[in-house]
Amino acid sequence: MISLILATAIRYLLPLLLLLSVYILLRGHNAPGGGFIGGLVASSAFALFALAHGVDLSKRVLRIAPRNLITAGLFTAGSSGCVPLFFNLPFMTGLWFETHINVIGKLGTPFFFDLGVFLVVLGVTLMIIFSLMEE
């Protein structure tokens, strides 16, 4: 019974929660939030989905293997730090685009770094939960 409710609810909740997580990620630079919390919210969405519909289906919905999410996240975070090196600035120096974008504020390398954090947290959590659930 509970699982039925959950199964139905999560179908609608999943996109909402993912949206929320992206929002938390985006606003993190200016208000409480950020990559960590965003990633955790997103992964809890998938975790709930997996509880209701099984690991296989959630893997299919997710499309990308968690390990690749981790790799992508590490890559994003690492390379965002490397960008300033090409401008002869130290590692991880923040570089910003001049244009102001709504919600996010200014876009710059620290944002991509936070995006990397988001991806890693999402990937890690899902990798742990999926492999525990698969047993």
Binding site: R67, T71, L74
Partner: peptide, 18 residues
């Protein structure tokens, strides 16, 4: 920076080539 970046990049590259 190299002593940190090189192993990091290598690790990421190895993860890509899992």
């Amino acid at each position: 920076l190299f002593p940190i970046l090189i192993p990091f990049a290598t690790a990421v590259a190895c993860l890509l080539a899992w």
